[in-house]
Design a protein around this nucleic acid. Structure first.
Length: 621
RNA sequence: GGGCAUGUAGCGUAACUUGGAUAGCGCAUCUGGCUUCGGACCAGAAGGUUGCGGGUUCAAAUCCCGUCAUGCCCGCCA
């Protein structure tokens, strides 16, 4: 097991050898040793291990004696200068000169790749998000989904995965049917952004439909819509495409991009479901009861060892359920079934890459066929996702049991009620709870904050900076909390740039950039003698934190938790801020060179971490 | 009723997966610091029975059992 942090790696190695020679009988795994190491408390040295307590209980010896015995083993390493047993703990002090040289050297060498770990094989992962219905604007709940999806994609890309970002567009659903129904008697446009316009129409039509008890008319329309090539089928797709283009303006404003959009109508046309059902039946995964409660349906039972109700895949009237479509879709994603989808360019994104879309006419392309899939979906859908996973495992075999990962996030709530799309909960009294309104409010706020900005650089530059600051504030705010936790949205809190925020991190980045601008060209050859004179705790705290980057990234990627990165970016920024106050880099004589190197390494590491959150660090703000 | 989450100072959040030294951080409150590489900053103070009760352990926010509160899921809806 190779640890990313050189000091930690060496400590682990030494502990392993010491245990082997002092307690050959103790069965302690590398994992246990590794987990026993912590690095929080600097008054006890730079690293500490509690492994002696473990050994103590196995070998029936006092922890204190165990730690002392382990410490007798001589240490001949580069990074650790001292090992001290204290009350059963073993503490290690780092050789600051050696450690600084190694860590900073590595950052300078790896640059924008610093903090990544390299896998043996390049795996392909499909990340699906946010798959919003194409008849409303993104509200702040959809935004959380999109930002999580974007960050998870970045984390995987950073860690050597080939990432395909997909957006599934379901334009043949009930909500679109309601809109088509309403448009029959009202069709004037208001000039609003199209997704906003459709969203408001939907809320209105939905209410009218309930009042007029027109459900059967809508159901008839729904059926027409699902008929390949019908007038309603075409119309639904047209309205939806226009709406998705409007939604993507929002996505682009936030710097969120996709590789391919998959449309429900194209999935139907490609007969993905039929292929999937045939294979499921052939493998005996599904059943078709001849009598009883589910007569004439196609059903699936929970896998052995799991409990839960029977799930219907095809209704007795022949109509497939959502779960069935989802199973087919994921069989395609993972290459279990193939399809002859055709693709064409949908839109050129500001990152200068095209988002492609499935289409009736186009060319074949190499999408899907991934090693694994991540679905960013609210935690309310945990059960259907379980069914999906279990169905895929049954059809694909044991190795498929963990190929689908559900990134389940807590929904966003409003203090005053629900965010439901059906009732229009996203429509607020003064401003809507949409991703667009959030961004525009945040930009106003950011513009106020930077009003002292040097106007000579022009209004455009100022507004562009305000936009980036606003985006960073929103992204950091949304990503810093554990995805699993629900969020109660509150305008007052959202608009507050406290020092636990994206702008705070960006500010530290800008300060670091300013120092480097002013320093000009220097000979920055990294030799350990350079670090000899450093003596401030604040200096070494920054370097130690920089050394943790790889372990942090690995954890965030494995656990699919961008908040781990946000937390780390903040710690890094705070440590830098303290260093900045204490050490006047440009006026520090012979200490200037090593301090400049700290600034360079800090700036690069912070840049990389903010990139993982989708935040663009800029040199001036 | 069954299942899944969550509960940490006034508020928000970290540490829980892998038990370890004084539960980390921010907002708000109070006290200090600009002849300064950018004050969107920093230093300090105050604020905690980690929902409650039991258990395991040398050691529990963390593991186990019970309990309370809140949210979500349990349809031939999506």
């Amino acid at each position: 097991m190779s640890e990313f942090d050189p000091g930690r790696g060496e400590f682990l190695e030494w502990l392993r050898e010491s245990i082997k020679s002092a307690y050959p009988g103790a069965k302690i795994s590398d994992g246990e040793i590794s987990f026993s190491i912590s690095s929080k408390k600097s008054q006890y040295g730079d690293l500490g291990s509690s492994i002696a307590f473990r050994i103590s209980s196995i070998m029936r010896e006092a922890p204190k004696a165990v730690a002392e015995k382990l410490a007798e083993n001589a240490h001949k390493g580069r990074f650790i200068s001292k090992l001290t047993p204290i009350n059963g703990y073993i503490n290690a002090s780092l050789d600051r000169k050696e450690y600084s040289t190694a860590v900073i050297g590595r950052v300078v060498e790896e640059k924008e790749g610093y903090g990544a770990f390299r896998p043996k094989r390049r795996e392909k992962v499909i990340v699906e998000f946010p798959s919003v219905n194409p008849n409303k604007p993104w509200h702040i709940g959809h935004l959380r989904n999109a930002l999580l999806g974007d960050s998870i994609s970045r984390l995987h890309e950073f860690c050597g995965y080939s990432v395909e970002k997909e957006d599934y567009i379901e334009e043949l659903g009930l909500q679109m049917a309601v809109i088509l129904w309403g448009l029959k008697h009202e069709s004037k446009e208001t000039g609003k952004k199209y997704d906003q316009f459709l969203g408001e129409l939907y809320v209105k039509f939905n209410k009218e439909m309930e009042e007029k008890k027109a459900q059967s008319e809508v159901n008839a329309l729904l059926k027409e819509m699902e008929t390949i090539g019908s007038k309603e089928w075409d119309m639904a797709r047209k309205l939806a495409e226009r709406c998705v283009r409007a939604q993507y303006e929002t996505a682009f404003a936030y710097g969120v991009y996709h590789d391919v959009l998959i449309w429900e109508s194209d999935v139907l046309r490609a007969k993905l479901l039929e292929k999937a059902l045939a294979m499921l039946e052939e493998k005996g995964v599904t059943e078709k009861p001849e009598d009883g409660e589910f007569k004439d349906c196609i059903i699936i039972r929970p896998r052995r060892g799991r409990s839960g109700p029977v799930k219907v895949l095809v209704r007795s009237n022949g109509a497939p359920t959502y779960v069935a479509k989802d199973i087919a879709f994921h069989m395609w994603k993972l290459g279990i079934i193939k399809s002859e989808f055709l693709y064409k360019e949908f839109v050129e994104q500001p990152n200068s890459k095209y988002a492609y879309t499935t289409a009736e006419f186009g060319k074949p392309m190499d999408f899907a066929g991934a090693d694994s899939a991540i679905n960013v979906i609210g935690s309310a859908q945990k059960y259907p996702q379980e069914i999906l996973k279990s169905a895929i495992a049954e059809i694909g075999g044991a190795s498929f049991s963990d190929k689908i990962r559900h990134l389940a996030y807590g929904e966003i709530e409003l203090a005053e009620g629900s965010l439901s799309g059906r009732t229009g909960g996203w429509i607020g009294a003064e401003r809507n709870y949409t991703a667009d309104d959030l961004l525009s409010e945040m930009r106003k706020k950011a513009l106020e904050t930077i009003k002292d900005f040097d106007e000579s650089e022009g209004r455009v530059a100022k507004e562009e900076i305000a936009r980036k600051v606003a985006v960073s504030a929103i992204k950091f705010e949304f990503l810093k909390v554990d995805p699993e936790k629900k969020v109660v949205f509150d305008w007052l809190r959202a608009l507050n740039f406290d020092s636990n925020s994206g702008p705070y991190c960006m500010y530290m980045y800008a300060r670091a950039s300013r120092i480097l601008d002013r320093a000009g060209d220097l000979n920055l050859e990294i030799k350990k003698e350079i670090f000899e004179k450093l003596e401030l705790e604040e200096e070494f705290e920054v370097i130690k934190l920089i050394g943790h980057a790889g372990d942090i990234v690995k954890r965030a990627q494995r656990e699919m938790r961008p908040n781990v990165i946000a937390d780390y970016a903040l710690d890094l920024s705070i440590a830098f801020s303290r260093f900045y106050e204490k050490a006047n880099v440009l006026n520090s004589g012979e200490l200037m060179l090593p301090r400049i190197l700290i600034v360079i390494a800090f700036r690069q590491t912070l840049y990389n971490m903010l990139w993982l959150l989708g935040i663009e660090a800029i040199g001036r703000m």
